[in-house]
């Protein structure tokens, strides 16, 4: 990974946090909608893996940055 600026690192961490919150909010909504709107709950659930992939990807980047800084 090429060297990231301070702004880019902040952005990466902020995106990671925002995606986690978005996922958490969506999980809560799936819970709310589960009984009353199963179609919507299913649609939201199907979108969650992609969101988790993004989160994992960002997490990998952060992990790499941290290990690089430690080394």
């Amino acid at each position: 990974m090429s060297k990231m600026s301070k702004d880019e690192i902040n952005r990466l961490i902020h995106d990671f946090n925002a995606e986690l919150s978005a996922l958490s909010q969506a999980v809560n909504l799936v819970n709310d909608k589960f009984e009353f709107d199963k179609i919507l709950a299913r649609r939201m659930s199907s979108l969650m893996p992609a969101k988790m992939d993004e989160i994992l990807l960002n997490w990998e980047k952060i992990k790499e940055l941290l290990s690089r800084d430690l080394n």
């Binding site: 978005a22 909504l29 709310d32």
Partner: peptide, 11 residues
């Protein structure tokens, strides 16, 4: 652009 975020806000 993020579909999950769109649906969440809509809800």
């Amino acid at each position: 652009d993020d579909e999950l975020s769109r649906i969440t806000l809509s809800c």
